[in-house]
Amino acid sequence: HSLENRWALWFFKNDSSQAWQDNLHLIIKFDTVEDFWAVYGHIQLASKLSSGCDYALFKDGIRPMWEDSRNKRGGRWLVSLAKHQRHSKLDRLWLETLLCLIGESFEEHSQEVCGAVVNIRTKGDKISVWTREAENQASVLHIGHVYKQHLGLSTKAIIGYQAHADTATKSTRNKFVV
């Protein structure tokens, strides 16, 4: 079953003796449902990775970094997890995120999606969905609402969208919330 897009799975392992980009590795690309599950079944669950590691799933041709021309005007919907949620929630939420991407759950707004990242960190893990244009408010909000629903988050929970340009300057201001 062909997917709408070809996707690339990336792995980041923190090694401070190397430049950031040298720690980022392309694992594999796939463009069918069956190949997605084959890949998913052969990699470690996110919860088993060491702190400092990331997985990123991006559309083929988009590198998982702010500097990429298809990311630099964009931003991310960010889900921050408490430390104790690594074992109870992280793997489920990351899988739901992957299924939203490959299944094109955001319908016509899916073209705004660049990819998603899971960051494994001692202080609390994070999952984010990256979109290409932070000023496309209608698409950003549609994606945020649908994403929150697919994650099964409570209506009381709030997730924020941050423009990469703000994150790059260390501002953590939410441009939108749902």
Partner: peptide, 18 residues
């Protein structure tokens, strides 16, 4: 053009099919 959309249920069934 048409977009290939798969819902969660379909994707999960593909995981479990032989």
């Amino acid at each position: 053009g048409t977009r290939i959309i798969y819902d969660r249920k379909f994707l999960m069934e593909c995981r479990n099919s032989p």
